[in-house]
């Protein structure tokens, strides 16, 4: 089952870019602005959905750019190394609300 999350949900992953105590809290991907970039911290999803998103490229420490707000929420997963091109993923609102992102 999905957890309830708030846009200012604190990331609990150790050493996460937006863990408690870090200067800026993690926010839900859904709450980001168009064109904004961030680093994925964690996903508050059931294991199956989380595994699918992770396999698609939305994994912890992945750098993302918001391409389109609304549904589908389109996010570009940027390459983890210089020169890579990444991919674009369309997400339903229910998923975009539960992917937590810290500052890039």
């Amino acid at each position: 089952m999905h957890h309830d999350v708030s846009p200012s949900h604190k990331c609990q992953e150790p050493n996460c870019c937006a863990a408690p105590g870090s200067p800026r809290p993690a926010v839900a991907l859904w709450a980001m602005e168009e064109g904004a970039e961030g680093i994925v911290c964690e996903t508050c999803l059931d294991a199956k959905d989380a595994a699918v998103l992770r396999a698609m490229g939305l994994r912890p420490r992945a750098r993302v750019r918001v391409c389109r707000l609304g549904e589908p929420f389109i996010v570009e997963v940027m390459a983890s190394v210089p020169g890579g091109c990444g991919c674009r993923i369309g997400l339903a609102k229910a998923l975009a609300q539960r992917v937590m992102v810290g500052p890039a």
Partner: peptide
């Protein structure tokens, strides 16, 4: 209803 997540090819 599983929420959709699809890769959007260029």
């Amino acid at each position: 209803n599983p929420p959709m997540a699809l890769e959007l090819p260029t």
